[in-house]
Design a protein around this nucleic acid. Structure first.
Length: 560
DNA sequence: AACCTATGAGACC
DNA sequence: TGGTCTCCCTAGGT
């Protein structure tokens, strides 16, 4: 095909300019034109631009109107990210092509794109080794002498729940924002959504599910069971209330309401995010979007004491975690880019024991589940951070792991969570933002990461889950992963242990909601299984063969 | 198929 | 410090 020059083939737009600025405008235009010409020549040499890419558009203005001289602009396809011509960012099929003018979307360092990011291709998935430091602090000495032996150094073989066992499709009416397993009933999963609804699902019986719709008026951010009565669950919501709900009846009370006058505009409205329970003191700890910590006494179900400023005034506190061994020790994190450790026994503004600095907002911070001695944080700078010992040097994290979990206002924030069953306190699970081209489908895996090495132990995905899965919870006792992805819930089990469900290789799926028909999923006769708002169907077998499922494990020799 | 939008954080002034 | 503008892999709806 004959070469096409920009001047003849690019669309032209003629706009009016005031005559006094005409000269300079034309000069600028000329400069711009020449730059474009050079770029275009470069592109043609590289074969980047083809004729098909060039949009034909002629827009004419009346040049003689009001006696103003028209100038001519040319339009061409530009990158939607940087607005510059010569390349285009976006999906090419199922592969996303980054804008080369922007820093890497994964590690945020300029000079390369996600496709060739060194953190993407290494098996360690972007771990930054722990810096060598002096370990001369007395507390670290105590740790080494008295506590280190209690932590096993031999890691078990990880049982990765990597196969969808059952699911409720479009169970909630808005996206799932939080998940919690029942503390004693192994097959009960609680879920909260953006609309304020609370779901209770028995995933062994699959179709036994209920959604309570009148507990909160918007996002449920956190849920915790009452440790003395596992029928009652506390929930913190962006509506500014803490609710205490009876799971049997769905009847709830509000021990705390920070917006007693209702909606007074977005600037005054207080929202509740982080929440945890200090079981020794019988207190619910909950933090708001203005930097304050509030307490609710579980016995009286009333507020207890005054709010304490624990993060920058006016900034959101995104998470609270009580240490599993010493519940008076608190870990909080927030939009002020800090995670902080506190002692509840002397809690006042500015009295934190320790401040852990991050580059961006900290979505979550958790003590390790067994010893409570490690800390894992998820920050919006696309890094997971691990502190190996709260008794050691806390000035900088022991490791930083580059991992794609970007902030997106339309997604629930990603939170990396420990595996509560891993005695070595290494394994963590976190959803991934960027997709992989997986046999022509863009899938967003759920990553299992060995936080002691930064190694990606497994990336699990299912061809039927095409949406991002920011909410993940590992079962406290069983090898089960619960995933909240958009409006749906999924239960994963290890392939080795997946129990055959009626027919081999078929998974139990409950489908709710009208949108399912649109997707062409086959409606089946469910007269004896279905409830009012849904129907049950069997998902088709995976479109991909199992051998093609992407699952990598760290080899045994890598485990000390 | 092509819009529309709910909505959060950061940059900038 | 506060208002305003911008924004790269959403998901579901019209």
């Amino acid at each position: 095909m004959a070469p096409v020059t920009r001047r003849t083939s690019f669309p032209k737009v003629v706009i009016e300019r005031d005559s006094d600025s005409e000269q300079s405008s034309s000069d600028e235009e000329q400069e711009e034109d020449e730059t474009l010409e050079e770029e275009q020549e470069q592109e043609e040499e590289n074969g980047v631009i083809e004729n098909a890419k060039i949009e034909k558009l002629e827009v004419g203005f009346d040049a003689n109107r009001k006696g103003k001289t028209p100038i001519t602009l040319t339009l061409r396809k530009v990158c939607k990210v940087c607005k510059k011509p010569g390349h285009e960012a976006g999906f090419k099929g199922a592969t996303y092509i980054d804008c080369p003018m922007k820093p890497c979307f994964l590690c945020k360092i300029p000079g390369h794109t996600t496709l060739n990011c060194p953190h993407r291709v290494t098996t360690e998935h972007g771990v930054v080794p722990a810096p060598r430091r002096k370990t001369s602090k007395p507390l670290e000495y105590v740790f080494e002498r008295q506590l280190r032996h209690a932590i096993p150094t031999i890691k078990p073989k990880y049982m990765i729940p990597d196969q969808v066992n059952c699911a409720v499709i479009r169970y909630h009416s808005r996206r799932v924002t939080t998940l919690e397993f029942h503390p004693t009933k192994n097959n009960i999963l609680l879920s909260g959504d953006k609309k304020g609804q609370l779901g209770v699902w028995d995933f062994e019986k699959v179709h036994e599910k209920v959604v309570y719709g009148n507990i909160h008026s918007c996002i449920v951010n956190n849920m915790r069971f009452n440790p003395t009565n596992d029928c009652m669950v506390y929930s913190a919501s962006s509506d500014g209330t803490v609710s205490c709900t009876d799971l049997e009846t769905g009847i709830s009370s509000s021990p705390m309401n920070l917006n007693p006058d209702g909606w007074q505009g977005p600037n005054t409205r207080k929202m509740l995010y982080g929440m945890d329970i200090n079981y020794e003191k019988g207190l619910v700890l909950v933090a708001d979007s203005f930097g304050f910590l509030h307490l609710v006494d579980m016995r009286s179900n009333h507020r207890n004491g005054d709010a304490v400023l624990i993060h920058k005034k006016g900034s959101k506190v995104t998470g609270i975690h009580c240490n599993p061994i010493q519940p008076d020790i608190l870990l909080t994190c927030g939009n002020d880019h800090y995670a902080r450790i506190w002692d509840m026994r002397r809690l006042e503004a500015g009295s934190s024991l320790c401040s852990l600095e991050h580059n961006r907002v900290v979505n979550s911070a958790y003590f390790s589940p067994i010893s409570g001695n490690k800390i894992l944080t998820t920050s919006q700078d696309n890094r997971l951070r691990i502190w190996d010992s709260i008794f050691g040097n806390m000035e900088s994290p022991s490791r930083e792991i580059v991992h794609s979990h970007d902030f997106n206002r339309h997604l629930t924030p990603f939170k990396a969570e420990w595996d509560p069953k891993d005695p070595s306190e290494s394994l963590a699970v976190v959803g991934r933002y960027i997709s992989e081209n997986f046999n022509g489908t863009a899938l967003h895996p759920i990553d299992f990461i060995d936080t002691s090495t930064g190694q990606l132990v497994a990336e699990v995905m299912d061809p039927n889950i095409t949406t991002i899965s920011p909410v993940n919870k590992l079962h406290p006792r069983d090898d089960i992963l619960a995933t909240g992805s958009s409006r749906s819930l999924f239960i994963w089990k290890p392939k080795e242990r997946s129990e055959p469900v009626e027919e081999k290789d078929e998974r139990k799926i409950v489908v709710c909601g009208k949108a399912e028909k649109k997707r062409g999923r086959k409606k089946v006769d469910n007269s004896d299984e279905s409830d009012d708002d849904g129907f049950i169907s069997k998902l088709k077998k995976p479109k991909l063969k199992q051998t093609e499922w992407k699952l990598s494990r760290c080899s045994k020799k890598d485990n000390r």
